[in-house]
Amino acid sequence: MRILVTGAKGQLGSAVVRCASSAGMEVLAYSRDELDITNSALVESMLFREQPDVVIHCAAYTHVDQAEVEVDTTYQVNAVGTRNLVFAAEAIQAKFVYISTDYVFDGQAKAPIDEWTMTAPIGVYGRSKLAGETYVRDLHSRFFIVRTSWVFGHQGKNFVKTMMRLGDEKEQLKVVADQIGSPTYAEDLAEAILSLIKSNCFGVYHISNSGACSWHEFAEAIFSYTKQPISVIPCTTEEFPSLAPRPAYSAFAHQSLKLNGFKEMRHWRDALLTYLKVEKRQK
């Protein structure tokens, strides 16, 4: 299987490249500098030349707060860039995987969100990612829309790395306790995506590690596992105002994985322990 990965140097993209290469797949890995997805002619010529069997689209504009300011740029990357890839992928009959987000929901749910829940994004980032979903649905016939949340991986910045750094610098820390979601280990997500592309079970999937927590609970688990002696104080979202609104509740149900017979995702606490062990080995 010949796979083209966009955003190949990001948290998820790098995990997909590692997992696919380990599985013996031929991987064409492109970073933002190597493939400008907003250039339709360039995207089309690249895909027609390389002829991948699958396109896994991990590239995105993910600066949630800055998206409220750089609106055009956000849509140019997340919507128009996705359209360019989808159109070319359909033309060469390559399967298409689009990585979406919990930010396509408004955060008003009271129970884990399944794949058929009505979308209602509350910020520019979420709306731009939903626009990308729309292009995928409208322009491609064999697609997987994969919504995920709270990703932590070995490449780049993430919440876990930030907490570990602050744990070495501070004795006390305030962390938001009124936002609930599902943490996702990038390596687990990558493995799940590779399982999808081997099938023809196309559609929308919610893929995160199982279970849910607040950012505060997530931080407490990190410090407990790393044995960093720091006091974690719960606080509200209002105490940390930001440009972009955040969903208050975005924990996922994994109905599509279950109904299509895919492997259940392990609990986020188990995934976190594995992540920390790998990070320790890599130091």
Rank of each mutant, 00 (worst) to 15 (best):
R2M: 05
R2K: 15
L4K: 04
V5W: 07
Q11G: 08
V16A: 08
C19E: 15
A20K: 09
S22Y: 06
G24L: 14
M25T: 05
V27D: 13
A29E: 04
D36Y: 11
T38G: 10
L42F: 11
E44V: 05
S45F: 05
L47A: 07
Q51Y: 00
V55P: 12
A59V: 08
A60F: 00
Y61R: 02
H63A: 14
Q66F: 11
Q66T: 08
Q66Y: 12
V69R: 15
E70P: 02
E70R: 13
T73F: 11
T73P: 07
T74W: 06
G81Q: 01
N84F: 10
L85M: 14
A89W: 03
A89K: 06
A91W: 05
I92Y: 11
I92P: 08
Q93Y: 05
A94T: 11
K95F: 08
F96T: 07
Y98A: 04
S100P: 00
Y103G: 09
V104K: 06
V104Q: 08
G107F: 01
A109H: 03
M118K: 14
M118C: 05
T119N: 11
P121E: 11
G126M: 00
S128K: 02
G132M: 04
T134L: 12
Y135Q: 10
Y135D: 14
V136E: 09
V136A: 12
L139W: 13
F143D: 00
F144N: 08
I145H: 07
V146S: 11
R147D: 04
R147V: 10
W150H: 06
F152G: 01
G153M: 01
V160C: 04
K161F: 08
M163H: 02
M163S: 04
G167A: 07
D168V: 04
K170I: 13
Q172C: 13
Q172F: 00
L173M: 15
L173W: 03
K174W: 02
A177G: 14
I180A: 02
G181E: 01
S182K: 03
T184H: 02
T184W: 01
T184V: 05
D188Y: 04
L196T: 10
I197R: 00
I197V: 15
K198M: 12
K198D: 14
S199H: 03
C201P: 06
V204M: 11
S210T: 14
W215P: 06
H216T: 05
F218H: 14
F218E: 03
F218V: 09
A219W: 00
A219D: 03
A219F: 03
E220A: 10
A221Q: 12
Y225L: 15
T226A: 15
T226F: 06
K227D: 15
I230E: 01
I233C: 08
I233F: 03
T236S: 15
T237K: 11
E239V: 02
A244D: 10
P247F: 07
A248W: 00
Y249G: 02
S250W: 08
A253D: 14
H254W: 09
Q255M: 03
M265D: 01
R266W: 04
L272V: 05
K277L: 10
E279S: 13
K283R: 14
